[in-house]
Every structure is written in C-alpha cells, then in structure tokens.
Design a protein around this nucleic acid. Structure first.
Lengths: 130, 130
DNA sequence: GGCTACCCTGACATATGTGGTAGGGTTTCA
DNA sequence: TGAAACCCTACCACATATGTCAGGGTAGCC
C-alpha cells in the first residue's frame, strides 16, 4: 500500500513514517515512480517502532535493537533484551504506584460517599418527621 | 536531605530535579540559606515524575495529573466526590495506557527470548554432533 | 488539457529533555 | 584564613520528535 493508507492504518502521520525511515529504523522500497510501497511486514515493524517511541524509547535505542523489530526476533539482540527488561521494570513500578494510588482514592471516595449517604438518610428522616 | 543526596537516591541528576521543579511538577522548599530541602515525600513524588517521564509522558501530561502525584491527595485531589471520581477515571486511564505499553514491551521480549532459546538449542545440538 | 488527489524532497520551526558552563554564595574543617 | 564540597541561578547548546510549508512530480478521471 502507499503512504497515506499506511499512515492511516497506523494512526500516525506520513511525516512520522518518513522519520522512522530517515533514522534507519525502517526500510521501505519504492515503486517505479519513486513512491514508497509499504508491505504488511513494513506496517507491523512501523507499528512496533511507533509503540516503542510512544513508550519513551529514543530512535537511538530503537536502532540499537533494530534486529529485534522484525516479525521474528532474529539476530543478536541481547542488548535489546536488557533494555526491554529495564523498561519493563520501569513500567511495572509505575503501574504498581498507580494501582496503589487508585486504591487510596477509591477508599477516600467510599468514605465520602458513605458520609453523603448518611447525610441523605438523615435529611430524609428529618423530612419524614416534619 | 539536600540536592546531591536526593539525586543520588533517585539515580537522576540534580539538573533533572530542578527541571521538574521549573516545570511545576514538584515544589521543594528551602532552608534559610536558600538550599533546597527534599523531604521523603518530595523524593517519592520526584520518583514518580521520573518514572512517568521515562515512560514517555511529557511534562504537560504529568502536570495535568499533578494532583495525583502526591502521597495522599492534598490539594485538588481531595474535596468532593465528583473530583475523586474524575481522579479515579484519570488513574484508570493512565493505568490502562501503561498496561498497553507493558504488553507491547513484554510481547517483544518474549519473541526475543524464544529466538535466543532456539539459537542456544541449535548451538547445543551442533556441539553434540561434533 | 485540466482537475484532484496522491506522491516526493528539503528546509525551517517548535517543544522538550538533558547536558554543560559561568559566576557566585555557604558550610565545614583543618 | 583557606580549601573543599556543597549549593544557587541563568544562560547556551544539542538531540529528537513532530509539524508545516514550499516547490515540484505522477496518476486517474472528466
């Protein structure tokens, strides 16, 4: 497929696709007229690049584990594994924090809602009484 | 504690700590001489900021959820069921995002490790054969 | 041919995270 | 008093991800 469709499918801009290419993360071949022709494999690879960048990896880092980006991680990518593990740890730490925080907020929310319910009940009773 | 120790404990530079402050993500008070004094709460908050940035969030985004970064919601994180519900939704959204990012990284990691295992097995077989 | 909707490259612009350096104050300790 | 090891602010520099715009080619359709 050509650029527009590829970009749309990945939900990124053509500019970004060209950027990946320029940075050596992606190789796309051309049709006779010079237009880029994206295969499905290209698309999957580009999708991974997109995700990695969205997750805070730089093109440098991604390039370093370039071999790990193709459909089947062929090639030597121990460095990639290390990096990935590191990033995974980062994300996990964050997510745990969020989970904990969520519980805290939820707790408080429940307390508050109980309080409100109590007030409402009280108000209702007063209304009844009157 | 003062800047050096804080930076060392968080494994980031003092420069970065100051950056968080300048961007309004962190408020650190000072001792009489004007030196920053980091409390443990400051440290935890800064650690969260560090993690969010490392996970690809911009200071803008982090600022937007600033209230959820303190240990216990002081400021806008408290005061009103509506607000808390909003916060809960924010946190959930964030956590979902992280989960997605985590899955992306994990996926790749698994493919890679399978690849490495396959290679190792191959190498072992070759060694046996010889 | 002309119109429309694609495509290309290249340059400039902006935001952001981070490093570095300069110039200068404070604390501590001998 | 002087030196070492801290601290401060304020700047400039750099990389990078993206946007945007200019100038120009190509394909398809009426």
């Amino acid at each position: 497929m050509q650029a527009k469709e590829a970009a749309e499918r990945l939900e990124i801009t053509q500019r970004m696709l060209r950027h990946y290419e320029k940075e050596g993360l992606l190789t796309v071949d051309r049709t006779l007229n010079g237009y880029r022709h994206y295969t499905n494999a290209d698309l999957r690879r580009a999708g991974r690049i997109r995700d990695f960048i969205a997750s805070g990896f730089s093109t440098r880092e991604i390039r370093a584990m370039s071999a790990c980006l193709s459909d089947d991680g062929d090639g030597p990518c121990e460095g990639g594994v290390e990096m990935l593990k590191q990033k995974l740890a980062d994300i996990d730490r964050l997510r745990d924090e969020l989970t904990q925080r969520r519980a805290t907020v939820l707790d408080r929310l429940e307390v508050l809602e109980q309080g409100l319910a109590r007030e409402a009940a009280l108000a209702a009773r007063i209304t009844e009484d009157s």
